[in-house]
């Protein structure tokens, strides 16, 4: 394994999602992006909150091995409706079907996150956030039209609340950023708790090392 000796990057986002990158940038965190390469294995008996936290931890751990001196943030988001977990659609037909399933109903969005640093093994924080989203009743044509935009294809549940999908979201109860893919309030709070970053006060300064 190649251990990266460059310690100038103290915070790493272990996710290829451009949405998560934008969110983290929005609160002023300096970080670099290093997506994990773990395979996302599903266990049908696992409850959603356990699944997202486990996958977030696996992603963060995978990247932390390469950057043992950095704080690594991993995250995983799933959409759950009536006990069914909707991941990313594998094709157009599945995207349409997922949207037909969400149409006119309230579903849950879970994002799990894990913050860890192999140099501080006792300081891991793993958490999750849950939001409820009501999608308005959609016609077949609306579903097809939305899938035509291409936006649903790489999104859990086949919609993006921050994109064109905003037009089909009637209500959100709970964290909005959680639905986008990273619950900023919780993550910001835990960053502060760990002394990594306080976006409301002191700029990035590793208190643990000083």
């Amino acid at each position: 394994m190649i251990i990266n000796q460059d310690t100038s990057h103290r915070i790493i986002l272990a996710s290829a999602s451009p949405r998560r990158k934008e969110l983290l940038e929005a609160i002023g965190v300096q970080f670099i992006v290093r997506p994990s390469e773990v395979e996302e294995l599903m266990d049908p008996d696992e409850i959603p909150e356990d699944q997202v936290q486990r996958l977030a931890f696996e992603k963060a751990s995978d990247v932390a091995k390469r950057y043992p001196e950095s704080w690594v943030l991993g995250a995983d988001t799933i959409v759950v409706i009536d006990g069914r977990i909707l991941g990313k659609p594998s094709d157009r037909a599945e995207a349409e079907y997922m949207l037909s399933t969400l149409s006119g109903k309230t579903h849950n969005v879970f994002t799990g996150y894990a913050i860890l640093n192999l140099s501080f093994p006792g300081s891991n924080i793993i958490g999750f956030s849950r939001s409820e989203v009501l999608i308005r009743q959609l016609t077949r044509d609306e579903i097809k039209g939305y899938v035509d935009t291409g936006e649903p294809m790489d999104k859990a549940g086949a919609y993006a609340i921050q994109g064109v999908g905003a037009a089909i979201v009637e209500k959100v109860y709970g964290s909005y950023t959680n639905v986008v893919g990273l619950p900023l309030c919780e993550v910001g709070r835990d960053f502060k708790k760990l002394g990594i970053f306080d976006f409301l006060g002191v700029q990035q300064d590793d208190k643990r090392k000083s």
Binding site: I81, D82, G83, R84, S100, T101, S103, G104, K105
Partner: peptide, 8 residues
Amino acid sequence: QKTESLNN
């Protein structure tokens, strides 16, 4: 219960 939740 689950079947009732299906839209189609």
